[in-house]
Design a protein around this nucleic acid. Structure first.
Length: 551
RNA sequence: GCGCCCGUAGCUCAGUAGGAUAGAGCGCCAGAUUCCUAAUCUGGGUGCCGCAGGUUCGAAUCCUGCCGGGCGCACCA
């Protein structure tokens, strides 16, 4: 807020200077207002003079001098300005400016930080998209929490967001699943059975089989494999949905790949590609000329068996997303899907669609550490750790927080022992404790019969401590942080912001008392606390974490 | 061999659009509570920002090459 006001001021100086012939327009929009790292360098600084000097081959300090002369005519924001280093202009704000950040927070409350930069643009976030072959594992957890939080960020910035789960309940994978359940069912009945060679070995299939026996005994023992496939799928999907709901994730729609076949959308893509002469037959298979799009080799889209490879439905699915009117399509994938991205992008381009509207977030793997060793996970083997197990151990908030702490590009190391044994040390509690403390202050004020002050009737000029400035400054950065995190699809920035704000608050709390004999100071500090509480609560909500009143 | 991601403090990781003296948490050491919750705070860091070049006023950040780790490179998804 304050920063953007300053930026406006400097922009106006820039235009003024250009009008006076002090410099050209070449540097328009290239300079910025940043926060200096060290004391004595002002509240903000601008690299204006250095950028301009680069463009015009002039001495930066001379330009800085001209800028300073223009800035000194302002008497609303600035206390003083100083030229420093190679040509930075350090900007020192009037102390009174800082307290103005509380008014918008007080006005907008839960709405504070929300913007409409998305302008109701239709965006789809597709994530999780796990086929129902087993419980969600840790990797799906990262995918889900990342996708969900990105969707929340886009909601908060005024996009019209649809969350979609894409799945496939046909194909070889699912037949193996059906065969695995059938074998478990027969095994529990003491009948002859043959467990598929590469079957799913997880305990969960025994559980489903046990339920079937409780329901209907051996009634199903002569049923076809497809019956078991369906039974397994339904049970597993119900589990998946329950797990997702438990960690705060919901979807607006589920899209079954089968729909693409039913509605002839697969054939439509093939027809279209054929018309453009981008497919050909070889070795009984149908190939897509991806080499025409700069790829190393062509790819099969229909196998010699007549079944499409994953590429064809993926292309058809995206075509359908465009038809449904999405202007921006975000896909959250694990890094093991890297190979599919270029193929599908080429396919989209091939059918005449603008693939710059599709953005893929590839997140790296979660490495699970147990006893200092990496746990190798496989869906088929019984060696994977489920999200439910993790949540049982560390709780929803800690899980979300941990998974959001790293940017998607980084591998994420999740130490089970650490999460279990030291959950008290978890940084999520640090932030939440800040909120609980603020609530506690309010309770104490009520107990002492100190009324919560009206901001408009409170004199904030007594907020002069270093810690108070720091808090006001951090609060003022919240809206820009939210829009930045949304624009860059970077939820981890919200986490880091919350830790910073909570940290400043804890420092303040330990050094200064809020409720004192000094009524004026008490009122001002209570207003400050209200602002911090609102922003902490909004930030926690934004990433799907709870803001407890008491801990 | 080719493509994508990563390499920053003992460990796990931040570091917008290139900026001034490099950041946090954890761990470790030493302290703080007659007072609003000590799940807190304060103090303690000699880091070849993987290596070598290049671009420029200025590089952890951009470019090139190399080294190391991860993930891929199917008529699986």
């Amino acid at each position: 807020m304050i920063r953007s006001k300053l930026k406006q001021l400097i922009d106006s100086c820039f235009n003024q200077g250009a009008a006076q012939g002090l410099w050209s327009n070449a540097a328009a929009g290239l300079y910025n207002v940043e926060t200096p790292r060290h004391d004595g360098q002002g509240d903000f600084a601008t690299n204006f003079a250095m950028v301009l000097a680069g463009k015009e081959k002039r001495n930066p300090r001379e330009i800085a001098g001209q800028l300073v002369a223009l800035l000194e005519t302002d008497d609303t924001l600035l206390d003083k300005v100083k030229i420093a280093g190679p040509g930075f202009v350090n900007l020192f704000l009037k102390p009174s400016v800082w307290s103005t950040v509380l008014a918008p927070i007080d006005d907008q409350r839960q709405q504070f930080g929300l913007t409409n930069i998305g302008n109701s643009k239709k965006v789809m976030v597709e994530f999780v998209s796990a086929n129902p072959t087993g419980p969600l594992s840790v990797g799906h957890g990262r995918n889900g929490i990342l996708g969900d939080t990105i969707a929340r960020l886009l909601d908060a910035t005024g996009f019209d967001v649809t969350r979609e789960y894409y799945f496939n309940d046909a194909g070889r994978q699912m037949r193996v699943l059906g065969g695995s359940l059938q074998a478990r069912y027969l095994e529990l009945l003491g009948e002859d059975n043959q467990f598929p060679e590469d079957g799913y070995q997880g305990e969960y299939l025994y559980e489903i089989a046990r339920e079937m026996i409780e329901d209907a005994g051996d009634e199903f023992k002569d049923n076809e494999l497809d019956f078991f496939r369906k039974r397994a799928q339904d049970a597993i999907f119900a589990d998946i949905e329950a797990t997702l709901k438990r960690i705060g994730i919901t979807f607006d729609s589920y899209y079954n790949e089968h729909t693409l076949y039913e509605e002839g959308l697969i054939d439509a893509v093939v027809t279209e590609l054929r018309a453009k002469n981008l497919v050909y037959e070889k070795d009984d298979a149908t190939w897509f000329k991806s080499t025409e799009f700069g790829h190393e080799k062509d790819r099969v889209i229909i196998k010699s068996s007549g079944e499409p490879t994953y590429r064809l439905p993926d292309i058809a699915y995206h075509r359908e997303k465009y038809r449904r009117g999405f202007d921006w399509m975000i896909n959250i994938f694990g890094s093991d899907h890297i190979a599919t991205v270029p193929d599908v992008m080429a396919g989209i381009e091939a059918i005449g669609l603008d693939n710059s509207k599709v953005q893929v977030i590839l997140h790296q793997f979660v490495t699970l550490m147990r006893d200092g060793r990496q746990v190798k996970m496989s869906t088929r083997k019984a060696t994977f750790v489920t999200i439910d197990e993790l949540v049982d151990e560390v709780g929803v908030d800690a899980l979300r927080f941990f998974f959001l702490m790293r940017k998607p590009d980084s591998q994420l190391e999740f130490d089970l022992e650490l999460a279990k044994a030291q959950s008290q040390e978890n940084p999520v509690y640090y932030v939440q404790y800040g909120h609980a403390r603020l609530c506690s202050i309010e309770r104490m004020a009520a107990e002492k019969e100190v009324a919560l002050p009206e901001l408009s009737a409170t004199d904030l000029s007594c907020l002069r401590e270093k810690e108070e400035y720091q808090l006001l400054k951090t609060l003022s950065e919240y809206p820009a942080m939210v829009t930045g995190a949304a624009k860059d699809l970077a939820p981890h920035r919200v986490i880091f912001y919350l830790m910073e704000l909570a940290g400043h608050f804890h420092s303040f709390y330990n050094k200064h008392k809020v409720i004192t004999e000094d009524e004026q100071l008490t009122a001002a500090r209570l207003c400050l606390c209200q602002g911090i509480k609102t922003v902490l609560a909004n930030g926690l909500e934004l990433v799907g974490l709870t803001a407890p009143n008491k801990m």
